[in-house]
């Protein structure tokens, strides 16, 4: 497939939606028809009794995976952007270094350690993994919100002020729209990383696409591992390409012909 695509002349092919559609279709195919590839997995694990993971349906696992990543993403976006905005206001400027450091600290903390520490407090299940993802995903968003807002040209901000815009109007109509591409890039990094990291949740009893991987490792069944990894990779690629479309449409607003 890749051959036929690269053979096309380098004109703008189809719509920007091409890749999200391709990856999304493959993802869908993999979650509903994993068993169709049984011969392939049989080749990987000829001796196993069972080669296609079937304890829970893949689309159910996908749904739970998305839910965990989604909740964590919504919380990190709200908290991260709000923190970034707060410390770039005159009143919050004192907290700028602190917030920057806290966000970095969140990312240096390995998610596995967060899981280990939060299980005694929050118990087994979905909650500890959401907490870990929130901590881990905060940094790219905070960092990019800060960078995006600080990059907005001072001339433009002072012009907004001089025209009689209130600080809130300036933030909402000028600063945030201008910083949006950079903030979005941070959200994209955060979410994509978290799609992969969420698989760790399977170790503390949160059922998601990490299940086949953990189960495969525990039972020495490589086919399970491949199935989990494949689905997670396709999910990450789908979501990442969706962000690409979003970023492209944001960028093209500034370079309209």
């Amino acid at each position: 497939m890749s051959n036929s695509l690269s053979a096309l002349p380098p004109r703008k092919i189809a719509s920007p939606w091409l890749w999200p559609l391709v990856w999304g279709a493959l993802l869908l195919l993999s979650v509903v028809a994993m068993s169709a590839a049984e011969p392939l997995f049989r080749w990987i694990e000829p001796d196993a009794r069972q080669v296609v993971y079937d304890r829970v349906d893949f689309y159910v696992l996908l749904g739970r995976h998305l839910l965990v990543v989604g909740i964590a993403a919504v919380v990190t976006i709200v908290v991260g952007v709000a923190a970034g905005v707060a410390v770039t206001r005159t009143r919050g400027a004192d907290f700028l270094p602190l917030v920057g450091q806290l966000a970095s600290l969140g990312q240096t903390f390995p998610p596995v350690a967060v899981l280990a520490l939060s299980v005694p407090v929050l118990g087994f299940g979905t909650l500890p993994i959401i907490v870990a993802l929130m901590l881990y995903g905060l940094l790219p968003i905070v960092r990019n919100t800060l960078a995006g807002l600080q990059e907005v040209d001072n001339t433009i901000k002072s012009a907004a002020h001089a025209m009689g815009m209130t600080p809130t109007q300036t933030l909402r109509q000028v600063e945030l729209p201008l910083a949006a591409p950079v903030i979005l890039a941070g959200i994209r990094t955060s979410v994509t990383i978290n799609i992969a990291t969420a698989a760790l949740g399977a170790t503390v009893g949160a059922s998601n696409l990490g299940d086949p991987i953990i189960s495969g490792i525990v039972n020495g069944n490589m086919a399970y591992v491949v199935q989990g990894a494949l689905t997670i990779a396709l999910l990450a690629l789908t979501v990442d390409s969706l962000f690409e479309v979003l970023q492209h449409s944001l960028r093209s607003r500034f370079t309209a012909p």
């Binding site: 433009i156 907004a160 001089a162 025209m163 009689g164 000028v174 500034f254």
Partner: peptide, 30 residues
């Protein structure tokens, strides 16, 4: 101060136009 600035026109050297707004929207700001 905000109301004062809205009734005083202000022009600066580097225009300070909003890059994400088109010409018509920029002019219609105040």
């Amino acid at each position: 101060p905000v109301k004062l600035r809205r009734r005083i026109g202000y022009v600066i050297q580097h225009t300070g136009l909003f890059p994400h707004w088109n010409v018509a929207r920029n002019i219609g700001l105040v």
